[in-house]
């Protein structure tokens, strides 16, 4: 079956849409249905609007070794507080089956388990610069790589703790691995730089062999104590 056959055509009476509706997870840490109504009421009274008609997913992670749970009563307690129980998660197979028979399906939304944390990477350590770096400007990518998609003028300085990639003309100085990373490299398209350096080892424009016009990329890396300049074809 091809993927397109899943698309509902315009003549159907409905459409499927993906949505991320907010949903409150109620994690039960102690199974005690006698105290639950009072505790719930106490908390809801502090923010009645927030909880009014709120969809609730019951998380059984902390109580899934207990065995039988009275879902009829649990559901009734929630409904009595104007909450809308949607389903359960992280229960034992027996608990999930018992819940399903009371109209509370097993859900796998949100985080699955505390044992498999998914670390969200908010910001990459790579620094991206898209506007020209003019003479006298200095850009430093601390603890990461530096990517420049614009020209770097003579008299400008690029510094990076990692690699440096330049996709516009590189006419200024480029210093990679400034904290001593000897594996850092410099990648550029033309070799017009005033100075290139890796982990403190440097070459000035005068020391660089003129490179034949190439359509590929040029890479600079450190080979023992000597900077090597190569084309990548």
């Amino acid at each position: 079956m091809s993927a397109t056959s899943l698309v509902v055509n315009r003549h159907t009476s409905f459409q499927f849409k993906t949505s991320f509706a907010p949903c409150t997870i109620m994690q039960i840490s102690r199974y005690d249905l006698d105290v639950l109504p009072r505790e719930l009421m106490d908390i809801i009274s502090r923010a009645p609007n927030f909880f009014l008609g709120a969809p609730i997913v019951i998380d059984l992670e902390k109580v899934n070794t207990l065995g039988e749970i009275d879902f009829v009563r649990l559901k009734a307690i929630l409904v009595a507080q104007n909450l809308v129980p949607m389903g359960v998660r992280n229960g034992s197979p027996e608990q999930l089956e018992a819940a399903a028979s009371q109209g509370l399906p097993a859900l796998s939304i949100g985080k699955l388990s505390a044992d498999t944390p998914k670390k969200k990477i908010e910001k990459s350590a790579t620094r991206l610069v898209t506007s020209p770096i003019r003479s006298g400007m200095q850009v430093y990518a601390k603890e990461g790589d530096l990517v420049v998609t614009a020209p770097v003028s003579a008299g400008a300085e690029l510094l990076s703790d990692g690699h440096i990639h330049v996709y516009g003309p590189l006419r200024g100085r480029a210093m990679a691995g400034v904290q001593g990373n000897r594996n850092a490299r410099i990648f550029c398209r033309t070799l017009e730089a005033e100075l290139i350096s890796i982990a403190g080892y440097y070459l000035t424009k005068e020391d660089m062999q003129p490179m034949p016009e190439s359509h590929g990329m040029i890479q600079v890396y450190l080979d023992d104590k000597q900077l090597r300049i190569e084309t990548i074809s």
Partner: peptide
């Protein structure tokens, strides 16, 4: 030209 390049850097920052 180099001085103008420097000024363009200041204009953008």
């Amino acid at each position: 030209v180099r001085d103008s390049d420097r000024m363009l850097g200041l204009l953008s920052s």
